[in-house]
């Protein structure tokens, strides 16, 4: 296991546009970066069985999920020549239209961050123990499953 400290990727509620803007601003001092790539996961108002999804209520096996995110981060740094990388995921209720996942990669040239972002997002979907309860407007729910 890596000796690097395991970070907490979780934020309570939606990831705000202000958090994303601030995160971008923090990179202006890192002048060796030539390109950033950002993936934002947004909650969809899906129609399921004639009912509209109002929000997703996220929960997680947090210790294992943070370890999984740590492993994904280490794998991405070894596979791609990245300058830096940030991952945030929501916990609790995120309304349709709000952001639940923020993956931010930076590199000297564009190709590395494009490829890394796709890798990280796919790995999170497959390997991070995060669960989503899709809550309808009438407050009934179903459990979401990644395809």
């Amino acid at each position: 296991m890596s000796e690097k400290k395991i970070k907490n990727v979780f934020v309570q509620g939606p990831i705000t546009p202000e958090k994303i803007a601030t995160s971008i601003a923090h990179h202006q001092v890192k002048t060796n970066i030539g390109g950033h790539d950002i993936f934002l996961g947004q909650v969809r108002a899906d129609e399921i069985g004639g009912k509209m999804v109002r929000a997703i209520d996220y929960s997680a096996y947090q210790d294992m999920a943070n370890q999984a995110m740590h492993d994904i981060r280490e794998a991405a740094f070894s596979k791609f020549d990245l300058t830096c990388m940030h991952i945030y995921h929501s916990l609790g209720e995120v309304k349709a239209g709000e952001i639940c996942l923020f993956v931010f990669t930076s590199s000297v040239h564009r190709k590395e961050c494009f490829d890394a972002t796709r890798f990280i997002v796919e790995e999170i979907k497959a390997n991070a123990p995060i669960f989503g309860k899709e809550v309808f407007e009438d407050e009934t729910h179903v459990w979401k499953e990644n395809k």
Binding site: A60, K125, E145, N146
Partner: peptide
Amino acid sequence: VAILPPFAGG
């Protein structure tokens, strides 16, 4: 030990 249903992150 943890029992995990299908994942839905992202």
